[in-house]
Design a protein around this nucleic acid. Sequence first.
DNA 1: TCGATTATTGCCCGAACGACAATAATATTA
DNA 2: TAATATTATTGTCGTTCGGGCAATAATCGA
Lengths: 298, 298
Amino acid sequence: MDQLRALRYFSKVVQLGSFTQAAAEFSVPPSSLSRRVADLEKHLGADLLKRSTRSVQVTEIGEIYFQQIQDVLRLLAHSDETVRSYQAKPMGQLRITSLVGFGEQRLLPALEDFKAQYPDVVLDVRLSDELTSLSRDDVDLAIRGGYAPNERVQAIRLMSNEFIPVAAPAYLAEMGVPQSVLELQEHKGIYFRTPRGPTPWLCQVDGEWRDVSAPAVAISNNGAWLAEQAVRGRGIMMAPRWALAAYIDRGELLELSFDTTLSVNQNPELAIHLIYQKQRYLVPKIKAAVDFLVERFR
Amino acid sequence: MDQLRALRYFSKVVQLGSFTQAAAEFSVPPSSLSRRVADLEKHLGADLLKRSTRSVQVTEIGEIYFQQIQDVLRLLAHSDETVRSYQAKPMGQLRITSLVGFGEQRLLPALEDFKAQYPDVVLDVRLSDELTSLSRDDVDLAIRGGYAPNERVQAIRLMSNEFIPVAAPAYLAEMGVPQSVLELQEHKGIYFRTPRGPTPWLCQVDGEWRDVSAPAVAISNNGAWLAEQAVRGRGIMMAPRWALAAYIDRGELLELSFDTTLSVNQNPELAIHLIYQKQRYLVPKIKAAVDFLVERFR
DNA sequence: TCGATTATTGCCCGAACGACAATAATATTA
DNA sequence: TAATATTATTGTCGTTCGGGCAATAATCGA
């Protein structure tokens, strides 16, 4: 019995809930799937599917088997791809996901150069602040704040994600430059909202965390719009240094400094990381992208 | 092409370095392996093996593929086993590894009861203080000091591994009972040697770690022998509470207590953990053993 | 209750795999 | 250096396995 074929048939039947539809995907008659799945069940000595003449249901053990088989099929596909693309030029589809802000301001511009350098790679970029599962195989590369979830994935630190406080020169002229973090509460605040909630201004005094946020004049998950607000002198804003660098360079925003360092969470050194599955680094398109992004950002 | 069969053939050829020997394991002529591997190479579009008429060598990409394929074959075997043994009685071979001391004193006696309860499970116990890789599939269950290496494996805390200082009554009568950790250096020490080195006596004073070890009169990786030395009044010994409980109960050794807690490493709460692969909990023999050991020790 | 959809079973055919023998090449030994 | 034996490959044949097609049985929906 060609178990691998049986697994693919079974898997598709489970996904589509129908022998007929699954058969269509393989361009073979439904009878083939029926027989192959039956073979598989005999081989395993258990019923994977509960069939009636008109419908298919997955049994409890069938569902368990299905779940575990996904890993097998995915791993094998990856291994085959690794060999097939061995010492070939980078090509094919490359799926990247990134934090929205970083994606818009840094990643997408960089990828323009990448596309020029590797025209045969088709980019599929998804910007989202939700954390997608790298292992589910819906993505080749991910850019995230945080660290490596487990040992099979590699996480390379691209740059710091340190939040710094800034304000427009006009705002500071009118409201005064705050000399201490405690004075911040007399000011106006512009806040970035992450999927995990807003980002209050925190500082550590005598080993204890204190919230020194100013009253809010703007809250959004859109970094560009918030920065615009800050440039117009609406208030003080905290955002990652990489997101503000352009404004600071142009003199539109000034970085504030205090004796006590300010941050937006209790783990200030959560950097921006590039994440990928270790063993997939051998695939040319992935190696090319990783090397390119590391070279560009680190 | 039955790729799975080809993978098994290829894998065996790599392991044995010979088509003939590999063919013998499958009870098929070598010509079959030759053809199947050739099919596989054609399918992948790359040479996996460098052949001369008398010998076989693995190519670079062949070696990479071989390594990755091992995971695929192992996962598939596990999945099949899960289904096959679904709602069957615990049976078959069960491979357990454990720390030597814990194994001798606690695990092996417990397993006597386990064997009586599940006579169809054939136990294969390996005692070693080296950390074996659970994922390499050479072991079903592991008992280790420490924590979970990654998210796919489950680690259940069985009991504390706190080291406590003890000495024989006769020794204390002769040498005096140390009142403070600093006095320990005037005493005689009996030390356990782990694979990571010996276990000095440490205590934390003003947030700083200090070594308060006494001069050594005995060092060994054999806990039973060391305990014997302590019983005979040769010196003070630090060992896990579970290893000393029997001696203390019999009054052969007395637990020493200090105002400053003593330990043998800078991470005192490294407990004894039972470790297994999460998804394999569905296999009856593994579920039975995990449940049994947790019930027994926790 | 009737009709249509869906899974299964029977039968035939082609392709794939194993068995066996023969061949070519190379490592080992004299 | 030459002879021998071992080892991988190739050719040929027969069996088995899986796909194609048609017919059947069972069930969901109208």
